[in-house]
Amino acid sequence: MGIHALRVMTAVRQGFIVARTDFAWFYTWKTWLGGWLVRVLCQVAFYSIIGVTVGDPDYVVHVVLGAALMICVAESLMTVASTTWDLNLGTFPLLAASPVVPGGYYFGRSMMWPLSATATTSIAIFTMSLFFDLHWTAADVPLVVVLVLLTSFATYCMALVIGAVALLAPGARNVMSAVVTMAITAFCGAVVPVDFWPSGVGWAAQAVPVTHGLNAIRHLESGADLGVVARSAGLVALVGVVWLTVAMIAFRGLFNHSRRGSASLS
C-alpha cells in the first residue's frame, strides 16, 4: 500500500508538471486576465441580465450563480481534450511501456483546468454579486471558494471518465464535451430548476457534481443553516469520489485495452 501510494503520488506530480507547462503555453497572466477572464465575466453577465428581465429578484440570484458555476463546468470539461493530447505527442505508447499508474498520471495531467476554473468562477461570483445584489458575509467568502473548488474537482473527476472514453474515439472528443456541457447546463439546475424535467432526468442529474454544488452555494447565499450547506457539499464530494474511482479503473482498463492493440491508441 505504502509503495503504491507513493507511485500514485509520483504519477500525479509528473502529470501536473506537464499540465502546468501546457497551461503556461496557453495563457500568460495577461491573456488569462484580459482574455479568458473577461470573456467569462461577459458570459455570466449576459445570462444574469436575461435573469433581470424576468423581473423576479430571486430568479436573478438563481441565474447569476447558475451561470457562474457553468463556467466551472465548461472549464473543467476541457480535460476531455487534454486527456487525448498524449496521442498526438506520441507519448502514449511510452507511458504504456513505463511503470506509471495511469489514473494517477491523468489526474495530474489536466489539473490546470479545475484550478483555473476555481479562480475564474470565484471571481465571477463575487464580481457579479456587486452588480446583481447578491449578499455574502465575510465568513461566506472562503466557503464560496471552497465550494467552487470542490465542485471544480468533482466535475474534473467526471471529465476524466469522459476523457478516457475520448481516448478511444479522439475524433469525437469536442462533440462529446459540447454535448455534455449542454446537457449539464440544461438539466442540472443552472437556469431551469431540476424538478422542471421528468423525474428520470432529475435522477441522472444527481450523478453530476454541479447539481449538488449549485444547491450548496445557493443555500449558502440564502443564509440557510450551515448543516444544509454541508450536506450538499458532502454530496458533491461523494459523487466526485465515485467518478474518480471509475476514472482510475477506466484508465487502467484503457491501458490494458491498448495492449490488445486498439488502432486509435497505437
Binding site: T10, Q14, I17, L89, G90, T91, S98, P99
Partner: peptide, 28 residues
C-alpha cells in the same frame, strides 16, 4: 529501456531536462 524511432514521443513544451526528469520519476 524502450526507444521507438522518429521524433515523436517527447513533451515538446518541456525542456530536455524536464523530459528526462519526468520519466526518471515515473521509473522510481
Amino acid at each position: 529501456g524502450v526507444v521507438f524511432g522518429g521524433d515523436r514521443g517527447l513533451y515538446n513544451r518541456l525542456s530536455a531536462r524536464q523530459n528526462l526528469n519526468f520519466w526518471a520519476s515515473l521509473y522510481g
